[in-house]
Amino acid sequence: MNPALFEPAQLGHLTLKNRIVMAPMTRSRATGANTANALMARYYAQRAGAGLIIAEGTSPSANGLGYARMPGLFTADHVAGWKQVTDAVHAEGGKIVVQLMHAGRVGHQANLPENGELLSPGASPAPGEIHTDAHGMQAPGMPRAMDDSDIAAAVAEFARSAALAMEAGFDGVELHGGGGYLIESFFNAHINQRTDAYGGSSAARNRFVLEVVDAVAGAIGASRLGIRFTPHCAANGALPFDGMDAQFIALARQLSDRGLMYLHLADYAAMGLPALPASLREAMRAAFDGPLLFAGGFDSSRAQRALATGDADFISFGRPFIANPDLVARLQAGIALNSPDFSTLYTPGERGYTDYPISQQSLMEAV
């Protein structure tokens, strides 16, 4: 029997009410010491119709807060803030995991707390510009090349943050292994020019991500841990390199051996970025003996086909969730979708965040 998009499904230890996943999306609403708040709780609770919510990229360290108003999860106040969110989602019958994302070299000192610094495998800045509330758009800062003690500290920070996520009531943790952020910067041969045990070969470049996975699995259990990759996306200088696909496939096999909760792949072709080759997705799926979540500009019919053909086990929706808190109901009933206001994607406050309308048909069906 083909899996159905709107029917309940099991994802590891979690029983989900459907196979629709809300993908992690930066929304920059963690005002005040990078702490989750009541506004964020309202936003996620509105979208608890998803089978699973993956909360936005959240830093496990003061050093990883590269973006303005990016949430953190490394203090008691952060735990309390996120507890508001998880309680609100659970009260609506939803499930939620948090994406741990250390921005690495993708940031600016103006976005970091006083004790934070940009770190990377080497001392080379990310390309492009980044927003700061204090100075507007700026070139990313120059990171400090990490030594062995910095690497060990970062691995420990991921594990501690994952443990705090359990205290905050999350149902699991996802590691962000894409986007050109810290984990992918070690993986990527263009960014990682090291010649020590963490660079110089595909096995060495995979070492950091595997150490993080093992540390987090040791803290919370592999069955509560997923990981997301964005192969070929080329974000933040993480350009394709010779042997990259083979390195991803080998990594998927190593992750499969660890019994993770899921593998999450994203294809950003619908956003005008380089596509994830179908051959790589298929090879990683074959190498990973576990559930595959797939994000790729899906609508309802394409999502159903991807499940029916076995391309994925769960389908992630990103931007449609921004403007449609009742997205699941709209997809199921064929109701037209609201369009997002792109000018408010990353601005503070409720405008363009918690004020999108729920359709009258969704309201009537919920009664």
Rank of each mutant, 00 (worst) to 15 (best):
A33L: 06
A33K: 15
T35F: 01
T35N: 10
A36P: 08
A38Q: 09
A38N: 01
M40C: 04
M40Q: 05
A41C: 06
A41W: 03
R42T: 15
R42L: 15
Y43R: 07
Y43D: 08
A45P: 07
R47V: 04
R47K: 02
R47L: 06
G49W: 00
G49H: 05
A50I: 02
A50C: 04
A50E: 05
G51E: 13
I53L: 15
I53D: 09
I54P: 04
A55M: 09
A55K: 10
S59A: 15
P60T: 10
S61F: 02
S61V: 05
A62N: 03
G64V: 09
L65G: 10
Y67H: 14
Y67Q: 12
G72C: 00
L73Q: 05
T75D: 03
T75I: 04
H78I: 01
V79F: 02
A80M: 02
Q84R: 11
T86P: 12
T86L: 13
A88T: 14
H90D: 09
H90P: 04
H90L: 05
H90N: 11
H90K: 11
G93P: 09
G93H: 08
K95Q: 14
I96P: 01
I96G: 01
I96C: 12
V98T: 14
V98N: 15
V98D: 12
V98Y: 13
M101A: 14
G104L: 04
R105F: 06
G107W: 10
G107F: 12
A110P: 02
N111Y: 03
P113T: 05
E114L: 12
E114W: 00
E114T: 04
E114Y: 02
N115S: 06
G116W: 01
E117H: 13
E117F: 08
L118P: 09
L118Q: 09
S120W: 14
S120M: 13
G122D: 11
G122K: 04
G122I: 15
S124Y: 03
P125D: 10
P125I: 12
P125R: 13
P127F: 02
P127R: 03
P127Y: 01
G128T: 08
E129A: 13
E129T: 14
E129Y: 04
I130E: 11
H131G: 00
T132R: 10
H135D: 11
H135T: 07
G136K: 02
G136R: 06
M137V: 01
Q138A: 04
A139N: 05
P143K: 05
P143N: 09
M146S: 02
M146K: 00
D147N: 13
D150E: 00
D150L: 00
D150N: 08
